[in-house]
Nucleic acid binder design. Structure first.
Length: 397
DNA sequence: TGCTAAATAGTGATTACGGG
DNA sequence: CCCGTAATCACTATTTAGCA
């Protein structure tokens, strides 16, 4: 009846059950057990007429009755549900709130027409791409982001993960004009994106990724998908319109649209490198250098975890990886060779990492290690002294 | 031995749930 | 939709452990 007025998700509190809210279903998804079985219960992302979103959980015992009534994108009147506080261990919440709602046997759902109530199609809670780092340190919240898909456009690739299972991934980069972030989608979600991109969209495509997970992978921020993640391509939303406007600016297009991997690297002299500022840290340049000296240091290689390729420390007789939290029985050994190098403009300390050091020496750490007693500094490392090399440098500090 | 901090157990209040 | 009971939560009191 129209006698009782409607509530909004904004006013939710515990202890009341006879709520009445009109809402649109923005998303529906399921959790999966570790063995890949879907849960009986499922999740909903709802949006009410005051632009307030809430995460609804439909428990397994009522899911079979409720699920057939629902359709993503449609409008419904939801009556009688409970309000529950999240537990501290409820991970990957799609909304930055302390509460969710839970449906029960008492919950009544009736269909509404678009003419009955005005509710937007979607509302997002965007985070700036530059602010994602802090979100990568936690697993409580998921995030909404918007960005322009850089070239090259995503393609699917197959891989076998460390558990021996086949997986499909797609990698690409998105930018907001200031910050560029990597995105990795997995399996069915990757295939959905690849399929969707075949459509004849205006290019470049602007993507909204809803409820994505932000992680740090090899010291770079990486966006990936979880069960709740959705994507919208060239979606009718003001954030997309605004980005499209930005793209009209010719400077913007030149600077950001192509992936910077094939931008030719700048050639530098030692003097020029020494004049670089803070902003150039993490930049790569190319130098023609003569290696003057290979100082006899105690460490000229380090141990590397065979799963994550991060440096692992020797603890007692074992090699332990702090990232994977495990003993690495047969760690890889990678070069970490400090040398003194120069050109006519000056001299620099540089560290040769595994690949370049191997190239210069023509041997791996293991091959060299087998030739000499353990404590001794291998004289073969000296063989690159007084030779010239073209070296790609990563500026650290 | 005496002090402090942490862990544990206990208690009351609140919330969830299922039957009528 | 209401109500009684079970389960859980939050807070307090007490015990236990660690340390000088």
């Amino acid at each position: 009846m129209a006698s009782t007025k409607l509530d909004s998700f904004r006013d939710l509190r515990k202890g009341k059950y006879d709520w009445k809210v009109t809402a649109r279903i923005m998303n529906l998804w399921r959790g999966y057990t570790k063995s890949g079985e879907p849960f009986q219960g499922f999740n909903l992302l709802l949006l009410d007429n005051k632009r307030c979103r809430i995460h609804a959980f439909v428990p397994g015992n009522v899911a079979p009755q409720i699920e057939p009534k629902l359709q993503v994108g449609e409008l419904y009147l939801f009556k009688n549900f409970t309000v529950k506080e999240y537990r501290p261990d409820d991970k990957f919440r799609c909304i930055h709130k302390d509460i969710q709602i839970v449906f029960s046997n008492d919950t009544r759902i009736s269909d509404l027409e678009e003419s009955d109530v005005f509710i937007e199609q979607c509302v997002f809670d965007f985070y700036d791409l530059a602010d994602l780092k802090q979100l990568s340190q936690q697993t409580t919240y998921l995030t909404d982001v918007v960005g322009i898909i850089k070239k090259p456009e995503p393609v699917l690739s197959k891989l076998i993960n460390k558990f021996g299972q086949d997986q499909t991934t797609t990698r690409f980069q998105i930018t907001d004009g200031r910050t560029t972030v990597k995105v990795t989608f997995w399996d069915a979600f990757a295939e959905q994106l690849a399929e969707a991109l075949k459509e004849d969209f205006e290019r470049p495509v602007i993507i909204i990724i809803g409820s994505c997970r932000v992680i740090e992978w090899k010291e770079k921020i990486d966006i990936s998908n979880v069960g709740a993640t959705t994507f919208y391509l060239n979606y009718n939303h003001h954030s997309v319109t605004q980005m499209r406007k930005m793209l009209k600016d010719p400077v913007f297009g030149k600077e950001y649209l192509s992936s910077n991997t094939h931008i030719p690297l700048k050639r530098c002299t030692v003097a020029e490198i020494k004049n670089l500022g803070e902003d150039d840290i993490q930049c790569q340049v190319i130098c023609l250098l003569k290696i003057d000296q290979v100082p006899e240091m105690d460490t000229w290689f380090h141990h590397v975890c065979t799963s994550c390729y991060n440096e692992s420390k020797i603890v007692g007789t074992d090699c332990y990886c702090n990232i994977c939290k495990r003993i690495v029985p047969h760690p890889d050994k990678w070069f970490e060779l400090w040398v003194l190098a120069s050109d006519e403009t000056g001299q620099l300390d540089i560290m040769l990492e595994n690949v370049p050091a191997r190239k210069c020496l023509g041997k791996s750490v293991r091959e060299i290690g087998e030739m000499i007693p353990k404590v001794q500094f291998p004289q073969i490392l000296k063989s690159i002294e007084n030779k010239e090399y073209t070296i790609k440098l990563l500026i650290r500090e």
